[in-house]
Simulated scan of single mutants.
Amino acid sequence: MKFRRRAGNVAREEVFLNLTSLIDVIFVLLLFFVVTTTFSRPNQLKIELPEASSGSPPTQTELKQLEIAIGADGQYQVNAQSLLTNDLASLMSALQRESEGDNSLPLTISADAKTPHQAFITAMDAAGKLGFAHLRITTVEAKAAP
C-alpha cells in the first residue's frame, strides 16, 4: 500500500510529554530511600572485653576522647579508624593525628580478651612515648561465683 502525502503546507503537531509529575515521584522515592537507609560500620572490630572484679565506671567528660581498640588478631583502630599496619610507628602517628598534639586528652584502651599481650604493650608504649597520662583500660564486670 502506498499512501499519498497531503498537498500543501500543513504544520505538524509536536508531541509534548509532561515529565513534571514523574520527576516529583522520583524525588519522593529518592527522599524515602535516603531517610529509611541505615548506615552501619562494617569496619568496627568485634571485641570481647576481659573480666575484672574491681573498677569504676568511666566518668563523662566534655573533652575529646581517644580510643584504641585492639582486636583478637592484634588489629588496631584509633577512634574507629583501622590502621593499615600494626606497628608502633603507625599507631603513634595515628594517635598524634587524632589528638592534634594534645596529650592531656583521656585515652581509653579496649582490647579483646584474646588479644596477644604484645599488641596491648605496644599500645601502652605508644601512649607513653607520646606523653598520655590519663589512660583507661576497659573491662566488663566479672560475674559472681555461685
Rank of each mutant, 00 (worst) to 15 (best):
Q81L: 10
E62Y: 12
D73A: 13
T108K: 13
A127I: 03
L49Q: 04
A7G: 00
A133E: 15
E100I: 07
I47Y: 07
E62A: 15
S82L: 15
L107T: 07
Q118N: 05
V15L: 04
A127F: 07
V35L: 15
G128D: 11
P106S: 08
A11P: 08
N9M: 00
Q96M: 15
A89N: 08
D125H: 09
T59W: 05
T36I: 12
A145Q: 00
S99I: 11
S104M: 09
E51W: 00
P42L: 14
R6A: 03
F3Y: 10
P57V: 12
F132S: 10
H134E: 15
K64H: 14
L105T: 08
L91F: 09
V34G: 11
F39M: 09
T108G: 02
N86H: 06
R5A: 08
T38P: 04
T139P: 00
H134Q: 15
L107K: 11
N18W: 02
A111F: 02
A119N: 05
G131I: 11
R12L: 06
A133H: 13
L19Q: 06
R12G: 01
S82I: 08
L30P: 02
K46R: 13
F3W: 04
P116D: 14
P50V: 05
P58H: 03
G74E: 07
L22E: 00
S21W: 06
L22Y: 02
G71P: 04
P57T: 10
A145S: 01
N18I: 02
I70C: 08
P50K: 01
T61E: 10
T38W: 10
L83E: 02
A113L: 04
K114N: 13
F32I: 15
E51I: 01
G71V: 02
R4A: 10
T59D: 07
A69P: 04
V78F: 05
Y76C: 11
T38Y: 10
G101M: 05
S53R: 03
H117L: 12
L63I: 05
V25K: 12
K114A: 09
L91T: 07
P50E: 04
L83S: 06
G71E: 03
I68H: 14
N9A: 01
G101E: 06
T20G: 13
Q75W: 03
G128S: 11
L135Q: 11
I121K: 08
L29P: 07
A111H: 09
V34S: 14
F3V: 15
Q96C: 03
H134A: 13
T20I: 05
E100G: 14
L84V: 08
I121L: 10
R6F: 05
V28P: 09
T139F: 09
F16V: 10
T108Y: 15
V25S: 04
N86Y: 03
K64F: 13
S40T: 12
H134V: 13
M124R: 14
T59P: 00
L88C: 04
A144Q: 03
